[in-house]
């Protein structure tokens, strides 16, 4: 299976074991430009590990991860991020002692403006860039409904607000690939709508989006493409509506044992 022009993320033959426990077994997954794909499956199936491997936090035992044809294996996490991969963590990992606005600004600032001497020597230019970034950040915070919280410390917010901050930070920079780990948890219905709007907007702009989700209703609101990961393998990929009709999908999702795996139509 080669990568096409439209494919942003290509995962081939990915395997990872932790001691005796085989977490991921020969996983194959792809995501195209502008495609939103949901990765579903019971807890402990290895979904977050998959994200960890793609974003460079863990090494796979075997297999390859390609971003627009370029291998990500062996790159440092910040190098992968610089290539246009953005991630929402399941446990958020906010910068708790920074304000909401600063959390977003960090994601928006390119490395040229982060030289220690930059502020001292090219003060005016950096200041101009900063003003530009602030406007952009406040605009984004407005989109997620956090404008009033902009100057509060991220650590002091409610869990829903923290989730929105994390989302804003993830969507701040222009990324080619978005890895969202449970974007809808902790969000009330209004916030959920804002989150799904952000996701749809990013995909419309050409970003490939992969979400890990348990809430199938939320999944249904943003996309029809799902991949089911259970017992370390992608068991089925396909359309949500089609799969909902098959009991294999529901059984697997509810966690009962699967003795045979039937690769479905991609």
């Amino acid at each position: 299976m080669g990568s096409t022009d439209h494919e942003v993320l290509t995962i081939r033959g990915l395997s990872k074991s932790f001691g005796d426990h085989r977490l991921l077994v020969n996983v194959e997954l792809a995501c195209d430009k502008g495609e939103i794909k949901a990765l579903v499956g019971p807890n402990g199936a290895g979904k977050t590990t998959l994200f960890d491997i793609v974003s460079g936090l863990t090494l796979a035992d075997k297999g390859d991860v390609l971003l627009e044809g370029r291998t990500l294996v062996g790159l440092q996490p910040h190098e992968i991020a610089a290539l246009g991969v953005a991630r929402l963590f399941q446990d958020l990992r906010l910068f708790e002692n920074l304000t909401v606005l600063e959390n977003v600004l960090v994601a928006l600032t390119p490395s040229e403006d982060e030289e220690p001497m930059a502020g001292l020597l090219c003060g005016a230019r950096v200041a101009a860039h900063e003003r530009c970034r602030r406007t952009k950040a406040l605009d984004l915070l407005g989109h997620v409904g956090l404008l009033e919280q902009a100057h509060r410390f991220a650590g002091e917010l409610s869990s829903g607000q923290q989730k929105l901050t994390a989302l804003a930070r993830t969507f701040a920079s222009d990324s080619g690939l978005l890895l969202l780990d449970e974007p809808s948890t902790s969000l009330d219905s209004d916030m959920t709508e804002r989150a799904s709007a952000l996701i749809r907007r990013a995909a419309a702009a050409g970003t490939a989006v992969i979400l890990i989700e348990h809430d199938l209703t939320f999944v249904g609101r943003v996309t029809d493409r799902v991949a089911l990961l259970n017992l370390g393998s992608i068991l089925i990929q396909g359309s949500l509506t089609e799969l909902n009709r098959g009991s294999l999908f529901l059984d697997s999702f509810l966690g009962s044992q699967i003795t045979d795996s039937a690769p479905g139509a991609s």
Binding site: H78, A86, R87, R93, E96, L98, E102, E114, A118, G119
Partner: peptide, 21 residues
């Protein structure tokens, strides 16, 4: 400066800071 802002981000959560480059 933005330099120290990112330094603080790294202090608070180095993994997340890596994830934003």
């Amino acid at each position: 400066s933005p330099f120290v802002r990112s330094l603080q981000a790294i202090r608070d959560n180095a993994v997340a800071a890596g994830a934003v480059g």
